[in-house]
């Protein structure tokens, strides 16, 4: 059985693709056979973040329309033999994805021995987002500690609880909160919603807190998911999140202000 994980948020630009790429790499680093699928038809970007943009020959829509086989379309990652990327199509046809088509691809991946399928959802609550979440067993809801992102995530939670296969069968999709761009200093200063604030408002448990970090941009510049940069706090935080996703218990890191310098110690703190 393949575990299907949707990475979703409602709002755009909060780090869904960054998160999908890092979760997929992290799971693969644990030896799991992983496929990460870009559901953002028309605005393909996962390939760039994964660093395989020049190796896309066939895409998700080609497979669904029978223009290519799944095997032809899966792009093997250069770093992990057990990690594959299925790129989104650049077509402008909004109806390119169908529920039956998506189900067939997911079933075929499961039959092929994939243990984890990570679905990178597009922003919004349109068809692409709906199909990305429909078959999910687990949902990682990516949230920035900021009002519009939190509100949009709540809409997504409503959809996860009503418009998914699990919901239709009277089951629940396992939902987790993943906070990105978190700044402990701003939280301390009362300028940013804290982990507890967001957990409380959304009623979700946190699976990871990714600190605001320049390393994320550097990673996407290079096409190397930030989780591979184990020097970086963001990379380490993603590594923790992956471990938790696999059932491990790890304490949250990078959620407190870093140790203060000499000057601050002298004058207060």
């Amino acid at each position: 059985m393949a575990e299907i994980i949707v990475v979703t948020s409602g709002k755009g630009g909060v780090g869904k693709t960054t998160t999908s790429a890092s979760l997929a790499c992290g799971l693969a680093r644990h030896g799991k056979k992983v496929c990460v699928i870009d559901f953002d038809v028309g605005l393909r970007n996962l390939d760039l973040i994964m660093g395989c943009e020049r190796r896309v020959v066939y895409d998700f829509v080609n497979v669904i329309h029978g223009e290519a086989t799944l095997r032809q379309s899966l792009i093997k990652d250069k770093r992990f033999d057990n990690l594959f990327v299925l790129a989104a199509s650049q077509t402008r046809d909004k109806d390119a994805l169908t529920k039956e088509g998506v189900q067939k691809v997911l079933d075929d991946l499961a039959a092929d021995g994939f243990e984890y399928i990570v679905c990178d959802s597009p922003a919004g609550i349109e068809k692409g987002a709906f199909l990305a979440m429909y078959f999910a067993d687990q949902a990682v809801v990516v949230v920035n500690p900021e009002v519009s992102s939190v509100r949009d995530s709540d809409r997504i939670l409503g959809l996860l609880a009503s418009k998914t296969r699990r919901a239709e069968n009277g089951e629940r999709v396992k939902e987790f909160l993943l906070l990105t761009r978190y700044s402990p200093a701003r939280v301390e200063g009362g300028e940013m919603l804290s982990i507890n604030d967001v957990e409380e408002v959304l009623g979700l448990k946190t699976i990871g807190v990714i600190p605001e970090s320049g390393d994320v941009l550097n990673a996407s510049n290079k096409g190397e998911p930030v989780i591979l940069d184990m020097e970086s706090p963001a990379g380490q935080a993603y590594d923790d999140a992956v471990a938790r996703l696999m059932g491990e218990t790890r304490p949250m890191r990078f959620t407190q202000i870093e140790k203060k310098g000499f000057f601050t110690k002298l004058f207060g703190g």
């Binding site: 900021e146 009002v147 939190v150 509100r151 709540d154 939280v187 009362g190 300028e191 940013m192 919603l193 804290s194 604030d197 409380e200 408002v201 959304l202």
Partner: peptide
């Protein structure tokens, strides 16, 4: 942050 939290609680 507390203003944000209060507003979110109500609207959500």
């Amino acid at each position: 942050a507390s203003i944000a939290k209060d507003r979110l609680r109500i609207i959500i």
